Simulated assay, not measured.
Amino acid sequence: MYPRRAAGIVLALVTGAALLAGPAPARAAPADFPAGDEGYHTYAEVTAELEKAVANHPDLAALSSVGKSYEGRELTAVKISDHVSADEGEPEVLFTCNQHAREHLTTEMCLHIVQRLTSGYATDPNIRSLVDGHVIWVIPNVNPDGSEFDISGGGYQYWRKNRRPVEGSRSVGTDLNRNWGYKWGCCDGSSTSPSSETYRGPSAFSEPETRAVSRFVDSRAPRIKAHIDFHTYAELVLWPFGHTKDDTTEGMTAEENARLRDVGQRMAATNGYTAQQSSDLYLTDGDINDWMWGSHKILTYTFEMYPTGPFPGFYPPDEDIARETTRNDAAVDILIGEAR
């Protein structure tokens, strides 16, 4: 999330066909992770794993798309429910990952959530209870163009933004997590410079990726009750608001702040992360959590995953994937349980 640091059945309501006009731009050739990190999953490999989960658990999981990236990649979503083909009106939970291209561990986190909730359903009573009582949505890669570019050329590119060229500039890319519409550009928590890593774009929701995911959330509101957006790194649990240092302000009562704080602290107690309001770190505006809460009162958090440092810690070895994704299992369960 933060640039200086050491989240089957095709649903017509989430089709992305109307989000992009004209032919998709040319993509870079598919790449793999650098030697030694092949345990990470490329976009194609993630897609294959999701298709496998759906094929193995067709009564529990279904694939759809919430739209397309700038380069035409599907923004794949997985629905997990005990009656996946039905719309039961149960409270819904959303997990999003990889808004920032170089934060590949987050895609592994979302993939792990899908695999755990589907493969564990038959044998784990806790998982069964959570799935039976909720509809769970997982979007493993909000920024597939950026994440594929980040592993191009045989090495990491340290790329953060998406890949849409900035009109009138030689720069490429907008920071998707500064492009959301609530308090966009309000409070010196993003940049107007296209060359900046926190460039917020020319307008709120200027990017096809944020438009697609926001329209999906709008279409499911008010049923979506809880949300985590996974990032790396710093081992933090963060809650809104990011645009102001105030705990209580327009759109946030003391009671609401207390609940966000309580749930955040309980989740952090399970994984050893530090829990704090987002703005206690520094100000951000136009981020996904402020929009989720400010627009829909969704109980929403950012998880900054492993490691804590030193800078730059965006590329932990693939040997750490299993440990650092399972580390969040209990926190994920708490969040699902809070969706009511």
Rank of each mutant, 00 (worst) to 15 (best):
residue 135 V to P: 06
residue 178 R to F: 06
residue 181 G to F: 13
residue 140 P to R: 11
residue 190 S to Q: 03
residue 138 V to C: 04
residue 198 T to C: 14
residue 141 N to I: 13
residue 175 D to G: 07
residue 197 E to W: 07
residue 155 G to M: 13
residue 104 H to R: 12
residue 86 A to F: 06
residue 139 I to S: 01
residue 105 L to Q: 01
residue 145 D to G: 10
residue 161 K to F: 11
residue 117 L to F: 14
residue 101 A to S: 10
residue 177 N to V: 07
residue 146 G to L: 02
residue 104 H to D: 03
residue 152 S to P: 07
residue 99 Q to R: 05
residue 196 S to Y: 13
residue 172 V to L: 11
residue 203 S to G: 15
residue 153 G to A: 02
residue 121 Y to S: 05
residue 216 F to H: 09
residue 187 C to V: 09
residue 98 N to W: 06
residue 158 Y to D: 15
residue 96 T to H: 04
residue 150 D to S: 04
residue 217 V to R: 02
residue 152 S to I: 10
residue 105 L to K: 03
residue 129 S to R: 10
residue 92 E to W: 12
residue 123 T to L: 06
residue 197 E to Y: 08
residue 205 F to C: 01
residue 124 D to C: 02
residue 154 G to R: 14
residue 201 G to H: 10
residue 112 H to C: 12
residue 216 F to D: 04
residue 150 D to E: 02
residue 201 G to L: 10
residue 174 T to P: 09
residue 190 S to H: 05
residue 188 D to N: 14
residue 130 L to C: 11
residue 122 A to K: 06
residue 218 D to Q: 13
residue 201 G to W: 09
residue 105 L to S: 08
residue 111 L to G: 06
residue 201 G to E: 05
residue 138 V to N: 02
residue 126 N to E: 09
residue 124 D to T: 09
residue 190 S to K: 10
residue 151 I to E: 01
residue 104 H to N: 08
residue 148 E to A: 12
residue 162 N to H: 00
residue 136 I to A: 00
residue 184 W to H: 15
residue 103 E to G: 02
residue 113 I to H: 05
residue 143 N to W: 07
residue 164 R to N: 11
residue 148 E to M: 06
residue 85 S to V: 08
residue 142 V to T: 07
residue 209 E to V: 03
residue 161 K to S: 00
residue 160 R to V: 00
residue 85 S to F: 08
residue 196 S to T: 03
residue 89 G to L: 10
residue 199 Y to W: 13
residue 150 D to V: 09
residue 107 T to H: 04
residue 189 G to M: 06
residue 160 R to H: 07
residue 215 R to I: 07
residue 179 N to F: 00
residue 183 K to Y: 08
residue 170 R to S: 15
residue 200 R to T: 03
residue 132 D to F: 01
residue 113 I to G: 08
residue 200 R to Q: 12
residue 184 W to R: 14
residue 192 T to C: 10
residue 175 D to E: 03
residue 85 S to R: 15
residue 154 G to L: 05
residue 113 I to W: 01
residue 141 N to R: 13
residue 118 T to R: 04
residue 183 K to S: 05
residue 171 S to W: 13
residue 182 Y to M: 14
residue 206 S to V: 02
residue 133 G to E: 00
residue 187 C to I: 03
residue 89 G to I: 15
residue 167 E to I: 07
residue 125 P to A: 11
residue 137 W to P: 00
residue 146 G to R: 03
residue 169 S to D: 13
residue 169 S to C: 12
residue 192 T to D: 14
residue 204 A to C: 00
residue 122 A to Q: 11
residue 109 M to N: 00
residue 86 A to Q: 15
residue 134 H to Q: 10
residue 158 Y to Q: 15
residue 214 S to D: 15
residue 159 W to F: 10
residue 144 P to A: 14
residue 162 N to W: 09
residue 193 S to Y: 14
residue 174 T to L: 11
residue 99 Q to I: 08
residue 131 V to M: 05
residue 173 G to H: 01
residue 137 W to M: 02
residue 121 Y to F: 15
residue 169 S to E: 05
residue 101 A to F: 02
residue 179 N to G: 11
residue 133 G to C: 10
residue 192 T to K: 13
residue 168 G to D: 12
residue 158 Y to T: 12
residue 108 E to R: 08
residue 153 G to K: 11
residue 207 E to T: 02
residue 102 R to S: 02
residue 89 G to N: 15
residue 177 N to K: 12
residue 217 V to N: 04
residue 168 G to I: 00
residue 115 Q to I: 10
residue 154 G to W: 11
residue 189 G to Y: 07
